[in-house]
Amino acid sequence: MQERFVLHNVKHVNGEYLDIVIEGGKIAELADPGQGQGKQIVDYSGAYVSSGWIDMHVHAFPAFDPYGDEIDEIGIKQGVTTIVDAGSCGADRIAELAASRQNALTNLFAFLNISHIGLQRIDELSDMTWINHEKVVEAVRNYADFIVGLKARISKSVVRDSGIEPLRAARALSNATALPLMVHIGSGPPSIEDVISLLEKKDIITHYLNGKANNLFDNDGKPLDVLMKAIERGVHLDVGHGTASFSFKVAEAAKKHHIGLDTISTDIYRGNRLNGPVFSMSNVLTKFLYLGYSLEEVIATVTTHAANWLNRPELGRIQVGDTANLTLFTVQNEKIQLVDSEGDIRTADQTIQSKGVVVNGALIKC
């Protein structure tokens, strides 16, 4: 059994201080500051604590280039306790991704790419024969505890001459498996109106703040009618920052018109982790703090909002009896330069910095 230890004098995002006692991998007690008792006292005075950060869009299959990375490099080392691979693998290699959980500390789930080849190629939906209904259904059945949805990348460079047909196939597969879709949007054709009109409640639009011509806002920054109708239907909005899919100007337009926030995710992989513009989850969260969202709003996107979408509310709370998945972080009053996917550079006065995690009861300092 894991030894009893205490996270001493940590604080919620609302500023309330407490001690968190962890024993046997679970939260054993939430005590007044200085009152927690345990064999080991870990002093995190001045640090915030939240339920463990969840990144809803990563690429954690290192065998694929360029969109791949090691699980723990984009998980616990970023202050993230749970990551969701966003369609790196199709049916051909989903077993390998599922097996890789055994060698990682970070919790891992996945969206299954509807193309059985996955990101072995980056035009994986350009040939409709690569979408095999039987293979998708079988993979979902075999990995029901791991696969949380289906992924379809619907932009010109991926679908090529297939147009909107891969998304129609994805919709049919969603109906067959009772799993929601995560749909990547980008350059057209197909048009954004054709794409979004096929999405239903709990489906995810990822990259919704991209600055490409085929985006969800008009030239004046007003949200398109198709976006507003999707929100009314219960379609979920996910940032999916990535190398080419986050614009400060579009994000400012979204905030002005009270769009979002549902989930903030990174679309992180080796290249944009090392060379930017993503770098880390902390860096992406800092951008939304800079945009004027409160710390509570920002942290909710990677805790309660993400956990609720996953139908795993225990991942988004700090409650006695739950497995301990926590993120420790600070907000420093120091200037930092932030860059979006368009090369637009902004200077922020505060920066979020991850300091450690408790993942399934184990404390790991960043």
Rank of each mutant, 00 (worst) to 15 (best):
R4E: 13
V21A: 07
G25F: 10
D32N: 04
Q37H: 11
K39F: 14
Q40I: 15
Y44H: 04
A47W: 04
Y48P: 00
S50P: 04
F61D: 02
P62V: 03
P66M: 01
P66D: 05
Q78H: 15
G90Q: 13
I94L: 03
R101A: 10
T106I: 02
F111M: 08
I114Y: 00
I114H: 00
I122A: 13
W130A: 10
D145Q: 07
G149E: 07
A152D: 03
V158P: 02
R168F: 15
P180E: 12
L181N: 12
M182H: 12
G188Q: 08
P189A: 12
S191A: 15
V195M: 06
E200D: 15
I205R: 11
L209P: 01
D218K: 01
N219W: 05
L227E: 04
M228W: 02
E232R: 06
G234A: 04
D238I: 11
T243F: 08
A244D: 10
S245I: 05
K249W: 09
V250M: 09
L261K: 07
I264N: 07
I264Q: 11
T266V: 07
D267E: 03
I268P: 06
Y269G: 07
R270L: 10
L274Y: 12
V278D: 10
S280G: 13
S280T: 14
S282W: 15
V284I: 15
L289K: 05
E296C: 02
T301M: 12
N308I: 10
E342Q: 15
D344A: 13
D344R: 13
K355W: 02
V359P: 00
L363G: 03
